[in-house]
Nucleic acid binder design. Structure first.
Length: 218
DNA sequence: ACCCAGGGTCATA
DNA sequence: TATGACCATGGG
């Protein structure tokens, strides 16, 4: 799958971001949100010189909400960003976190309000460069339709399956997840009655066109 | 007028 | 453990 996706889409060059902190912020802002909207929010933060843990904690919530408004859920995300930054400062900053082992760091991230499994793993993989495979809705959808997983596995089980098969490899996980997201945009979202929805040029179930790359057809 | 996007929390059963 | 409501903007 990786070989085919890579051949079809090429290197994705993930994660967009100039710093570890920017990646962490982006991971929260992109929750159930198109990245183009996140870009605008991050741009606003930069322009306001508010893209730092201290600046975000110090900023008035209403002002922060206005800056990140384009990313949607701005009230929810204001609280989440503040929680993340407060935690970051309490932990002594990113340098300290970077020294932690992956497992304790993952648990610590998960303890932060607004950081769930996927967001934590995005941060671990793309910001801290730890070999943690990110599972998202696209991963489930694609591999379920291909019949490679049942689809009902819980997050940790699925993550374990990928990590076991692939072996600990940061560069591979990085590229793979990015490719899965890229491919996810090409396949239709509607639940197919058949098992080949994401394999056909036109979905036989919902009729949606412009489907996946032929190279993925088996 | 829809549909959906690089989820997570919280209440309820 | 497993659903469902809720959050909100912007592009197609």
């Amino acid at each position: 799958m990786f070989e085919r996706l890579f051949a079809a889409y090429g290197p994705r060059d993930w994660w967009p971001g100039d710093s570890i902190f920017e990646i962490m912020v982006g991971a929260v802002l992109t929750q159930n949100t198109a990245w183009t909207n996140v870009e605008k929010a991050i741009c606003n933060l930069k322009r306001a010189k508010a893209l730092s843990p201290q600046a975000i904690v110090d900023a008035h919530p209403r002002r922060l909400a206005n800056l990140i408004r384009p990313s949607g859920y701005f009230n929810v995300k204001t609280r989440r960003l503040r929680a993340l930054c407060a935690w970051l400062l309490a932990q002594g900053g990113i340098k300290k976190l970077a020294k932690m082992d992956t497992e304790p760091l993952r648990l610590a991230l998960l303890s932060v309000h607004g950081v769930g499994r996927e967001t934590a793993d995005d941060i671990l993989l793309y910001a801290f460069e730890r070999p943690v495979f990110v599972i998202d809705a696209y991963t489930r959808r694609i591999f379920t339709r291909l019949g490679m997983i049942a689809g009902t596995e819980d997050y940790e089980t699925l993550r374990g399956m990928f990590e076991e098969v692939l072996g600990a490899d940061v560069a591979l996980y990085n590229e793979y997840h990015a490719l899965i997201v890229r491919h996810g945009k090409d396949i239709c979202r509607k639940k197919p009655r058949c098992n080949s929805c994401c394999l056909a040029a036109v979905c036989p179930s919902c009729g949606e066109a412009g489907g996946p790359r032929p190279i993925l057809i088996q």
